[in-house]
Design a protein around this nucleic acid. Structure first.
Lengths: 132, 132
DNA sequence: ACAAAATGATACTAATATGGTATCATTCCT
DNA sequence: AGGAATGATACCATATTAGTATCATTTTGT
């Protein structure tokens, strides 16, 4: 049970690199060299980030990616949700049959509390805060 | 990213049922009827629980499973670890190459804090507390 | 003793999620 | 015009999760 998958981890690294050079446009080629991430995979990640408005993209010779918004406006939870879907620690496995057990719902409630905490924590982490 | 997988969820339900009838020995047949969990799958789960000392087993006609320890001594985290392995939210994806980035370690530190909280929370939840 | 009812052990299969590739189209700069 | 870049999309490989199947062993009732 991983909070952060490889996609997200790579994406964080890539975005951080781009933030540290935000005056330039960064090509996949450069990122591959610096981060040692498989090129086609990294491309997929960057495309997703650009589609979701985290990065801007520039085609053609000399093109690449650049920040689309300030680093303190990009939250870790954004990247997690792009690559891993909505943050849900919890999910009732008995949606179909009416869940007859009090205990189950107690479990749910407790997990929900944990989930809330994790969500709040992740929402407070910005890319900027990972760079200091 | 699920905190609790289906195995664990089923196992919690089964153990709860057994706790609520702890004066008797409960057979898989009865549990299947009550919980609507596929029989061979449930059997696998119960065997694991008995191997790990959460349940005791009784073979032969009239046999089944029973509690091996009091419900307030069985922790949710125990069941999670039986079915999902050690609770680790975090894992550095760059163990091989020396991780050169301060940011990565900052990320790690933050995730570690969240992990600690989740672990502590789960350690405090007993099966007994799910029954009240 | 023996048959039925239960678990023990273990190997296998199916479905889904994750991690990664490949390819062709499109755009932009020189 | 042509090369260097991203856009879009479909595909493949591996691992994890969920579930099945089967035979051996033990216990109990008759």
């Amino acid at each position: 049970m991983k909070l952060i998958t490889r996609d997200t981890d790579y994406a964080v690294r890539a975005v951080c690199f781009i933030v540290r050079h935000k005056e330039r446009v960064i090509s996949v080629t450069e990122l591959v060299k610096k981060l040692k991430i498989p090129r086609p995979f990294l491309r997929k990640l960057l495309q997703a980030l650009s589609k979701k408005g985290v990065l801007g993209s520039h085609r053609g010779l000399g093109g690449g990616f650049s920040l689309a918004k300030p680093a303190n406006k990009i939250f870790l939870v954004d990247l997690i949700e792009i690559f891993q879907g909505p943050l849900k620690l919890n999910e009732c496995f008995f949606k179909k049959i009416t869940c007859p057990n009090v205990k189950r719902c107690l479990l749910r409630k407790k997990i929900d509390n944990i989930e809330r905490y994790v969500q709040d924590s992740l929402k407070s982490i910005t890319i900027a805060s990972l760079l200091k």
